[in-house]
Design a protein around this nucleic acid. Structure first.
Lengths: 150, 150
DNA sequence: ATGAATGTTGATAGTATCTATAAAGATTGT
DNA sequence: ACAATCTTTATAGATACTATCAACATTCAT
């Protein structure tokens, strides 16, 4: 349960943008409708993706968002990392600047945490938004198939 | 960063108990010293392990804690799950009663979350405290090797 | 019996983080 | 000038996590 709502929303928005193709920019309101993400939250999330260079935006009349690179070049890892930061399950097992711990030397627990970290990162890094778009179906392609929830 | 401090502490305490052998029970105070976990937090954690049947305790004069089963029979998964609950990275990807989502049908993101869930559980389930004890070294075997932290 | 040593339980306070919303600002095109 | 759109900032509420403490219950040695 470590993927925050924001990360969930951001990845959904990215998938929707990928499926939109990018011939024309997509409005925040449309993004919200197509992904079932609150507009007010997208207002916070999208600028983060933009600042990171993952998407680009245009303002004014026919403005909106588009991917800033071909979807084959954008990994799920890049987007998740942007919102989650460190992907290790615990602070003593991060790749960069692991938090010191008195039990650090010869800790067999830490080895397991590191393996989980590596498996997680590997899985995310191996997946591009082109892959995700190719695997999408149902409500992702046809908004009328979105299910009402609660 | 989803492994909480409590889970960290609980797994450390379990490893210390495993290394202690169980011929004689181990006091909370000794557990705290050997694992660098605050005594007051262990007071909350150990009863949870006891109620779950993972450890057993004795009160009074020469009381303390011991494993309640051979360490080959206790998996890291069991202990982590006790404190973390669901191990899926996101609520829509749990094995039991996944949280409904409007984009559920044909969601390629969800497939990735499920794979990460499975890889994580598999790694934890494959590791027993006997394994962890066999791989432990440094401060785990010799308290004088514990490093001072901040 | 008494008392010390030990585990058990419950209350609490502080901190941090997450979520969602709203309001005001900046830019663009008609 | 105006409307549509993205941008930024402030804020409130909810939730969870962490650590500590105090009071209690049990056991054993004396």
């Amino acid at each position: 349960m470590w993927i925050s709502r924001r990360t969930d929303y951001a990845t959904r928005a990215m998938l929707a943008l990928t499926l939109a193709g990018g011939a024309t920019p997509m409005r925040l309101q449309d993004l919200a409708d197509r992904t079932a993400v609150p507009l007010s939250v997208l207002e916070q999330i999208m600028p983060v993706l933009r600042t990171a260079g993952v998407v680009r935006s245009e303002r004014g009349r026919s403005g909106g968002y588009r991917l800033n690179h071909p979807p084959e070049k954008i990994t799920l890892e890049a987007v998740v990392r942007l919102f989650e930061g460190q992907l290790a399950p615990i602070a003593c097992a991060t790749r960069k600047e692991p938090e010191p711990c008195p039990m650090m030397g010869g800790c067999s627990l830490r080895s397991v945490w590191e393996e989980i970290r590596d498996a997680t990162i590997e899985r995310l890094d191996r997946t591009t938004f082109a892959d995700l778009a190719a695997g999408a179906a149902g409500p992702w392609l046809d908004p009328s198939k979105m299910e009402l929830v609660d």
